[in-house]
């Protein structure tokens, strides 16, 4: 099966076609809690993650809650 290539925070990543945002986070080993994500500068809300499939060439920005004042 052909892989697709996306860019996550400046790093190329190969994925199987029909990879959802939820699948991506699982692949990367991130819990969903505390994460936010934008695809091509549009924020994808968490309720849409299971059904939002990544496309060839997508620019994914992944954010995480961290300690701060």
């Amino acid at each position: 099966m052909n892989k697709i290539t996306i860019n996550i925070n400046g790093q190329a990543q190969q994925l199987a076609p029909q990879t959802s945002v939820t699948d991506l986070l699982t692949t990367l080993g991130h819990a969903e809690q505390g994460m936010a994500l934008a695809v091509n500068q549009s924020i994808i809300s968490r309720s849409e993650w299971p059904d939002h499939y990544l496309q060839q060439g997508d620019e994914v920005s992944l954010f995480q809650a961290i300690a701060g004042g």
Binding site: G34, Q64, I66
Partner: peptide, 28 residues
């Protein structure tokens, strides 16, 4: 309690500080 947001560093993992805060019933 306040928290910040950062772009995930794909090489170096940050600690998950969220779970213990939620476990302690903190509003974020």
């Amino acid at each position: 309690v306040t928290m910040a947001l950062k772009r995930v560093d794909m090489q170096n993992r940050d600690d998950d500080i969220l779970a213990p805060l939620i476990a302690n019933g903190m509003n974020l």
